[in-house]
Design a protein around this nucleic acid. Structure first.
Lengths: 340, 340
DNA sequence: TTGTCATTTTGGATCGTTCCAAATATGAAT
DNA sequence: ATTCATATTTGGAACGATCCAAAATGACAA
């Protein structure tokens, strides 16, 4: 910077003003300085600037599983919003490891982030986030909440989504509906299950405990859950799955039993991952719009960063049921048509 | 830092030595200092440190499309290796926009990265990377190469993979094999096409130009390519697809024509994305192991960062054909068994 | 000429670290 | 007691920006 000051025949203070786009410098000097900047191939050292003004434009973004397309989409939504507002997202993947997560958090604090958006790894405890919260920077939890946390959060309205999904299955004539997959220790598992119960209560259907089969929230878990269910004496003909991965697994398992999902059995997923609409049968699922969720979370964080003080806000984003083939609605309509 | 020096009754120089784990400090003082660090809740300011020693542990990592699970896996592989070596990956997604890519590169340079791994956005020109290369930091291109670049690269052995895939289809008895999908302006399109030609030449089969159908490298592109092919007078019964997304699309289109992939038609993909093995029929595909590819790229970058000087290295990573159902091998075997 | 005011420019302290040369403490040998 | 080597500790100058108070410049009126 002192070099370009010399080259332009001004002081480094003036160069600094030009760099910051200050209106105080005269047009002619601004031009000289900018010419010098170009000629010398100068690159701004943002680290040094942050050191002085102790306010950085870097925001942390911690994602529990980037290989899961739902979270990848979420990350992209956050990233886009941050970039657009001139912030630089510092993205890290924890691969569901709380140890890695702790390391990453420490590293981000050392780098002086202005705020943090985190989709916590499975098993994260409130105290894992204590270092960040204590340091006074705004934190937004996304997708997964944490009980008794003092941080803001942005989550899909899991309960309403599950309720609507089950209501839809009831409308298709189902009275016995299973709930497949998901870990019982997860926050969102209980929210979705609550929605399931709500809808059954609305329809005055009693909950059958053995129709609720928690497993890993993965394709493999879905296979296992569906197999468990089908091995029972009197299996139902419909299920709400904890998420789309479970739903895909459940479809695999149904086919393994010679049952065609969408025709002999109604399946509804949750999340609406990108493959949901192109798979056969196309998956009826609760659409969470992960990119929009990410944008919402980013907006909240930006608001808190800019406003200085940050009161805790817990936001539920709306979800909607995307009715496709796997629930059996199309098949039901076709039959109606045939009768009519 | 000066606060904790005061608290521990030593100078800030001593604190610095403790922080760096220097063997010069006496055990007793080290203990005192560390106690003070804990008590005061001190966090290290890595920015200030980097400013002084002008050497950072942050490495840039630019990915063209995080929502594509292949690239997400790649990112995870890079991330893991970087983390393990004590480097902090600074990940950005360009969403295939060269403008965004330019912004991100500039931002990373301003933050003083020690090196860069980039999977370039479609349409990246060698001059887009000039700023980084000129700045003297090591750069590794991954997955996609760039013609006439002065940077190192790590790519899957596209040509060998395509060759092996086509050879496999030939071994199954196919003489007419299509090549579906991919943009003609992409480097790796030509590599894979070259492998396709190699294998046909090996089997003394003439290339039929109308069997080569370039389209977008996406599921939609696959549908389009397969439809184009099937609308021709005398369609073939086998195809190598540019990538797995195209292959999935092609399967959709085949079914639309009442043709069952893996039975009436042999389909081979490329990449081996995570869904390839769980989809029906399971996709026979050239397995690229994106995580391993990422690890390899990260290792190369680390080598260059540590060694100081960086001669250009262009690495091809081995690929292998994962034979599953979609190519028809299983069906062929079953038929054999029935005859025997 | 001098004073006043607005517009531009600037010197130098500062942010939190590292690192060097120099200072100080410790202990053994004379 | 003095000297010398070795083990610890330390002051202060960097690193590359920002920012404030103060200085320089210019325009204009008295």
């Amino acid at each position: 910077m002192v070099d370009i000051a010399r080259a332009a025949g001004v002081s480094k203070s003036t160069v600094s003003l030009v760099l910051q786009g200050s209106p105080l410098v005269h047009e002619s000097t601004r031009a000289k300085v900018q010419a010098a900047i170009r000629d010398l191939g100068y690159v701004y050292n943002r680290g040094a600037a942050n050191l002085r003004r102790s306010r950085s434009s870097v925001v942390g973004m911690i994602i529990n599983d980037l290989t899961n397309s739902f979270f990848a989409e979420l990350a992209v939504g956050i990233d886009r919003t941050m970039q657009a507002s001139g912030h630089v997202p510092f993205l890290a993947n924890t691969a569901e490891s709380t140890d890695r997560q702790a390391e990453v958090i420490a590293s981000m604090l050392e780098h002086g982030i202005a705020g943090l958006i985190i989709s916590p790894a499975r098993g994260t405890e409130p105290r894992d986030l204590k270092p960040v919260i204590d340091s006074g920077i705004p934190v937004v939890l996304v997708v997964r909440g944490l009980p008794h946390n003092k941080a803001s959060s942005v989550q899909p309205d899991n309960r309403a989504g599950a309720r609507e999904a089950v209501r839809h299955l009831v409308a298709l004539g189902h009275r016995r509906i299973a709930f497949l997959g998901g870990y019982g220790d997860a926050d969102n598992f209980h929210d979705r299950l609550a929605g399931y119960r709500d809808a059954l209560a609305d329809a005055s259907i009693a909950v059958e405990q053995e129709l609720i089969v928690p497993t890993a929230p993965s394709r493999a878990g879905g296979i296992a859950a569906a197999n468990t269910l089908l091995d029972r004496a009197d299996p139902p003909r419909a299920a709400l799955c904890f998420n789309d991965a479970v739903a895909f697994g459940a479809c695999d398992a149904l086919r393994g039993h010679g049952i065609e999902p969408g025709i002999d059995f109604g399946i509804v997923g949750f999340d609406d991952v990108i493959e949901a609409k192109s798979v056969r049968p196309a998956l009826t699922t609760v659409s969470v719009a992960p990119q929009a969720l990410g944008e919402r979370a980013a907006q909240l964080l930006l608001k808190q960063i800019n406003s200085g003080r940050h009161e805790v806000e817990n936001i539920l984003t709306p979800v909607r049921l995307a009715v496709r083939e796997s629930c059996g609605a199309a098949a039901a309509r076709a039959k109606q048509g045939a009768i009519a």
